[in-house]
Amino acid sequence: MDSTLLIVITGAAVAGFVQGLSGFAFGMVAMSFWAWAIEPRLAAAMTVFGALTGQLLAAASVRRGLSWRRLWPFVAGHAAGHERP
């Protein structure tokens, strides 16, 4: 296996693990690996794609457990306390 591909795969795996634990930081972790192996434009595009994919997967899994009954008091509190222009 090519060393560049190994670095890209390792960076993505470690960054995905960190994002799974913390909910953010995919880009910071992935770029710390990828900056040494691939050109910056490609690394930036891959970072954005990976971070967005991770956030969309997390949002989809959280949305399944959302209870609108529990959310209404927060919405009502926001509506009551929201300053109107």
Rank of each mutant, 00 (worst) to 15 (best):
residue 55 Q to V: 15
residue 52 L to N: 05
residue 78 H to A: 14
residue 17 F to C: 15
residue 24 F to T: 12
residue 5 L to A: 09
residue 7 I to Y: 08
residue 47 T to M: 02
residue 43 A to H: 01
residue 58 A to L: 14
residue 55 Q to E: 10
residue 66 L to T: 14
residue 5 L to R: 03
residue 39 E to A: 05
residue 81 G to V: 11
residue 40 P to F: 02
residue 4 T to W: 09
residue 33 F to R: 02
residue 67 S to E: 07
residue 54 G to I: 01
residue 84 R to V: 12
residue 24 F to V: 12
residue 78 H to E: 14
residue 1 M to T: 06
residue 36 W to Q: 12
residue 79 A to T: 15
residue 65 G to R: 12
residue 24 F to L: 11
residue 46 M to Q: 05
residue 20 G to R: 04
residue 68 W to E: 13
residue 66 L to C: 14
residue 62 V to F: 10
residue 26 F to C: 01
residue 49 F to M: 10
residue 84 R to L: 11
residue 8 V to G: 03
residue 40 P to M: 03
residue 65 G to V: 12
residue 8 V to F: 02
residue 59 A to R: 09
residue 18 V to H: 01
residue 53 T to S: 10
residue 72 W to P: 04
residue 65 G to P: 05
residue 36 W to L: 13
residue 68 W to N: 15
residue 9 I to T: 12
residue 62 V to N: 07
residue 70 R to I: 13
residue 66 L to G: 14
residue 58 A to T: 10
residue 60 A to S: 10
residue 50 G to M: 03
residue 68 W to H: 11
residue 19 Q to R: 01
residue 34 W to A: 06
residue 32 S to A: 13
residue 16 G to P: 04
residue 6 L to Q: 10
residue 39 E to P: 05
residue 70 R to F: 11
residue 61 S to I: 10
residue 83 E to L: 08
residue 53 T to Q: 09
residue 1 M to Q: 05
residue 10 T to M: 04
residue 80 A to Y: 10
residue 11 G to R: 00
residue 18 V to C: 03
residue 16 G to M: 02
residue 71 L to W: 07
residue 60 A to C: 14
residue 67 S to D: 13
residue 42 L to F: 06
residue 59 A to Q: 09
residue 46 M to T: 07
residue 77 G to C: 07
residue 35 A to F: 07
residue 60 A to E: 09
residue 39 E to W: 02
residue 40 P to L: 04
residue 44 A to H: 07
residue 13 A to V: 07
residue 83 E to A: 14
residue 23 G to F: 03
residue 34 W to R: 06
residue 28 M to E: 11
residue 10 T to Y: 02
residue 20 G to S: 05
residue 15 A to C: 01
residue 34 W to Y: 11
residue 6 L to Y: 10
residue 7 I to A: 14
residue 76 A to S: 13
residue 15 A to D: 02
residue 73 P to A: 06
residue 12 A to E: 06
residue 30 A to T: 06
residue 55 Q to F: 13
residue 20 G to Q: 05
residue 39 E to I: 07
residue 50 G to R: 02
residue 59 A to W: 08
residue 82 H to D: 15
residue 30 A to N: 02
residue 63 R to C: 10
residue 64 R to S: 14
residue 23 G to N: 03
residue 51 A to Q: 00
residue 22 S to W: 05
residue 35 A to V: 13
residue 22 S to G: 04
residue 85 P to C: 08
residue 45 A to Y: 13
residue 70 R to C: 10
residue 57 L to V: 08
residue 12 A to G: 11
residue 43 A to S: 03
residue 51 A to N: 02
residue 17 F to P: 12
residue 63 R to H: 14
residue 5 L to H: 04
residue 15 A to S: 01
residue 43 A to N: 00
residue 73 P to V: 07
residue 54 G to P: 02
residue 23 G to C: 04
residue 41 R to E: 13
residue 57 L to E: 15
residue 7 I to F: 11
residue 76 A to T: 11
residue 84 R to K: 09
residue 52 L to V: 12
residue 36 W to I: 13
residue 18 V to A: 04
residue 80 A to I: 11
residue 43 A to F: 00
residue 4 T to C: 08
residue 26 F to K: 00
residue 65 G to L: 12
residue 33 F to Y: 00
residue 56 L to R: 09
residue 84 R to P: 12
residue 85 P to M: 06
residue 81 G to S: 15
residue 83 E to H: 08
residue 58 A to H: 06
residue 21 L to K: 04
residue 69 R to A: 09
residue 41 R to K: 07
residue 36 W to R: 09
residue 12 A to T: 13
residue 9 I to G: 11
residue 4 T to A: 13
residue 44 A to R: 05
residue 54 G to Q: 01
residue 80 A to D: 14
residue 47 T to A: 01
